[in-house]
């Protein structure tokens, strides 16, 4: 494969990886604090995109300038998703905190089915064109093409991730979060309000999901009620790849998975002698997932913890 196409695949991979990283952070934060896979997280991403879609259509029709519309629809999506995250935790997870593991997992599946179908009822089955609010003139970079939307995605993802790291490591709230993740009962004894820390964690994760949802839709120009589930699954893979519960791991895992997918899809035709095409792109994430879980279940940056007998 020529070098410029290779570079193109890497750029595409980085853009997609930034999105995965943001979504993966949501999984990893909840997992770190509750030890639970928030199955409904992918649907939160979808809701974020859909809300942004509706708000931006409305405001653009009212004649507001595109950049302002983008900002407002982002705010709306973030607000709705935070509320949603809060609600999911209160309804589906909090009552089951001491239940057997299977129980919250099943309610989570329930929540994601409900969200998906509510979205289908609200927004219909069809693919919606996502309004273009950033200029998307192509720039040529050493033979590869990248546009403003993609540049913005990578930059915003970087900014958000840096902000999150600062929040977790430099603030009182972050310290409380880490304390709850380490040992909930001890944190409670030290006066940390566990319930609100958990709520805030869900809300933060959901805010990131909203941002990611807008990014995906803006990048592909499409929003759809079904977009969340496969994206969620891949982002979860990214979180596992990096080491679930580990923030930096989620970021690394997201970027890596984006690259693996993009390069894999680009080369699979050559590698399999044309038998498999790029329509197998979605399979890579699952193979990565299975491989990581089998060979290094703690992920790239995770520590292996021995069980207490």
């Amino acid at each position: 494969m020529p070098l410029d196409i290779l570079l193109q695949q890497i750029l595409n991979g980085l853009v997609q990886g930034s999105v995965y990283a943001l979504v993966a952070l949501g999984y990893t934060m909840v997992y770190g604090i509750l030890g639970l896979i928030n199955f409904a997280h992918g649907e939160v991403v979808m809701v974020g995109a859909m809300v942004a879609l509706s708000v931006s259509q409305l405001l653009l029709a009212a004649g507001l300038p595109p950049l302002l519309v983008l900002l407002l629809s982002l705010l709306a999506a973030v607000a709705v998703c935070m509320l949603l995250g809060y609600g999911i935790e209160r309804i589906a997870y909090r009552p089951l905190r001491n239940a057997p593991r299977l129980a919250p997992l099943i309610t989570a599946i329930g929540v994601s089915i409900v969200l998906q179908n509510l979205a289908m009822i609200f927004w219909g089955r069809e693919y919606h064109a996502f309004p273009q609010m950033l200029p998307s003139s192509p720039h040529i970079l050493a033979g590869a093409v990248i546009n403003e939307v993609q540049i913005t995605i990578v930059l915003v993802a970087l900014a958000v991730m840096t902000g999150l790291l600062l929040l977790v490591h430099r603030t009182r709230l972050g310290r409380a979060m880490r304390a709850v993740a380490e040992n909930p009962s001890a944190a409670a004894l030290m006066g940390v309000d566990i319930n609100s820390v958990i709520s805030i964690t869900f809300m933060l994760g959901s805010a990131l999901a909203a941002v990611a949802g807008i990014m995906v839709s803006a990048n592909y120009g499409i929003a759809h009620y079904y977009m969340g589930s496969i994206l969620g699954l891949k982002a979860f893979t990214a979180a596992v790849l990096g080491g679930i519960g580990n923030l930096r791991g989620a970021m690394l895992g997201g970027l890596l998975l984006g690259l693996i997918e993009s390069l894999g899809a680009g080369y699979i035709g050559d590698l399999s002698g044309g038998f498999f095409g790029s329509n197998y792109q979605d399979v890579f994430a699952f193979f990565v997932l299975i491989a990581v879980l089998v060979f290094r279940p703690s992920g790239l940056l995770g520590e292996r913890v021995a069980e207490r007998a």
Partner: peptide, 13 residues
């Protein structure tokens, strides 16, 4: 599907 999802949640709770 909506009812299935709701049923899963309600039954578990």
């Amino acid at each position: 599907m909506l009812l299935f999802g709701l049923a899963l949640i309600v039954v578990m709770l």
